[in-house]
Design a protein around this nucleic acid. Sequence first.
DNA 1: ACGTATCTTGACGTTAACGTCAAGGGGCCC
DNA 2: GGGCCCCTTGACGTTAACGTCAAGATACGT
Lengths: 135, 135
Amino acid sequence: MTDIDELMSIRQMCDAYDVTPRTLRFYEAKELLFPQREGQKRLFTKRDRARLKLILRGKRFGFSLEEIRQLLDLYHIGDQQQTQLQRTYEIARDRLRDMEAQRDELTEAIEDLREQLRWGEKVIASMSQEKDAAE
Amino acid sequence: MTDIDELMSIRQMCDAYDVTPRTLRFYEAKELLFPQREGQKRLFTKRDRARLKLILRGKRFGFSLEEIRQLLDLYHIGDQQQTQLQRTYEIARDRLRDMEAQRDELTEAIEDLREQLRWGEKVIASMSQEKDAAE
DNA sequence: ACGTATCTTGACGTTAACGTCAAGGGGCCC
DNA sequence: GGGCCCCTTGACGTTAACGTCAAGATACGT
């Protein structure tokens, strides 16, 4: 709620989000984050933290940093030109479709795997059965 | 249904699954696929094709080839030792949990993005409104 | 003034997952 | 038997996403 919550050092960020300094600097170089500077030291804002959360989430879905960067633009829509905004919007809409498709496929894969696991249980059961009989 | 369906050349595989020869050879080197040989030429079986589908699906979820390889073992459970099978089973159970968690997170992210898109629509609408007024 | 802790900018190293040649064998057709 | 295709095995190149030093600025406690 105070300045401590508003601006965080690189170390605080690392502790809070379980990333390395190198990673944060890398994301800045790739224009995914835009920390302020106090002298030469980086200070990460609430906005940077929100973006970082989205980045990490995107990575868990297997998105590339470049794909994520395009999506991030949708989340700070204020400072964009009209045509650029339209483009951003369309990219996000496409990405949404991808994500929905991915979720459907994932649901399917989960079902498949569950079935395989039921199979596995049976096989394991019958194997220990045989083993019991042999003793 | 004939031999043509049973065994496929590397070229046929590439056309069928939209991958390169290099990729298939790479997957074999990493022990994800085990094509038969006719002389020195590779012949891919139905089993290889099933595995390849699972590989490509896993990749779309952002899994590494190594993670995928461990899962694949569950799908050809027949030829395993009992202890090894138990281990395979546990790995698959863990992976299932990961996938369920990922799906939940994805559902959440989809909701977030949908909301952002509604926002975006509004902003775009109001911007073209302003533009109309200015003309 | 000194140590130590945290930060900075290069710059080179690493891993995964392939891409991209180079050199050569085997089959088939005219 | 020359040409053409498809296949093979090395072996080196590439890209993304960082890791890992090296060398130096800045600040803080004693």
